[in-house]
Amino acid sequence: MEEYAARFDDLFVSLAQRRGFREYLTGLLAPRDRNKTITCLAGAEPVTGAGLPTVQRLQFFLSETAWDAGKVSDRRLELLREQPETTPHDSGVIDIDDSGDRKDGTATAHVGRQWLGRWGKTDNCVVTVTTVWTAGRVYYPLHAQPYTPAHHFPRGRSDPAFRTDGDPRFWL
C-alpha cells in the first residue's frame, strides 16, 4: 500500500496530509463493517472512540485541510489505466447507479425525501449517483456526485443550479 500511496504524495503539501491520506486509504481498504463512518475508518469504536487522536486527525484531514479530491481521483484513474488488468477496453461497460443512505433530521448536506430503492420507499436520505466501469471481475468507480433535492435551492426546481441525475449538466 505504501508504494501505491507514495504515487499521490505530490498532491499533498505537507507530511501531515500525506499521513492523513495513508490513514484514510488504510481505513477504506480494511475489511470493516462500518467503513462509511470516521470512527470505523480510523479503526475506533463508534461514539466512545470519536474523541481519540486517530479519529480527530482523520476528521481534520478530510474536512479541514486543503487538498483537491478531484486531482486525487484523477490520479487514481490514471494509475488504473496504466495496468493491463484494469485499463478500459471494448468488452467493458459504464454503469450508472444511484444509491441512498437513510438520514435522521435535515442538517446533513443533500438530505431530503427521496426514493430509496433498496428499501422500496421514499424516505429522508442522501442519494449519490455513481458511474463505474466494469468488465467481468474488474470494477472501479469513475465518478460520484451527491444529488441535491430541489428544496435546497432558493427557486426550487426552477433554480438554474438545480440538476437531476438525467441532466447531462449534473455530471459537469
Rank of each mutant, 00 (worst) to 15 (best):
P46W: 02
P31N: 12
E64W: 02
F60C: 11
V132E: 07
A69G: 15
P84H: 11
R81N: 08
Q83I: 11
F21W: 10
T48G: 06
H89A: 10
P88G: 08
S91R: 15
F8Y: 10
D74M: 09
L41T: 01
I94Q: 05
L25A: 02
T39Y: 09
A30M: 11
G100H: 01
H152C: 08
T26P: 00
R81W: 06
H89E: 13
Y139P: 00
T131W: 00
S14K: 06
S14R: 11
G70E: 15
Y24C: 09
T108A: 13
C125G: 08
T128A: 11
G100N: 02
F12N: 04
Q59S: 11
Y147R: 07
D9N: 10
G105Q: 08
V126S: 10
T48A: 11
Y24Q: 02
D33Q: 15
H110V: 02
H89C: 13
L80F: 10
Y140P: 02
A150P: 03
F153M: 06
R75K: 15
V138Q: 04
L52H: 09
T108R: 08
A109W: 04
F8R: 01
T86R: 06
S73Y: 04
P88E: 05
L25H: 01
L58C: 04
L52C: 00
A42M: 01
H143Q: 15
H151P: 03
L142C: 09
R76T: 14
V13P: 10
N35C: 14
D97T: 06
G51R: 13
R32W: 05
D10A: 12
R57D: 05
W133C: 01
V111H: 04
P53T: 07
T26E: 04
R102S: 13
R75S: 07
G100C: 06
Q83Y: 01
T122P: 02
Y140H: 13
A30Q: 09
L116T: 14
Q145N: 09
D97H: 01
L52Q: 13
D123C: 08
N124I: 11
F8A: 09
D10P: 00
D33R: 14
D90V: 12
T39K: 00
A44N: 09
T86G: 02
V55F: 00
R76K: 10
T26G: 04
Q59D: 09
H151I: 00
V93Q: 03
G43E: 06
Q59G: 03
A30R: 15
L62T: 04
D74F: 09
N35S: 11
A107K: 15
K103T: 06
T106N: 12
D98R: 07
Y139N: 14
K71D: 13
N124S: 15
G117Y: 05
W119T: 02
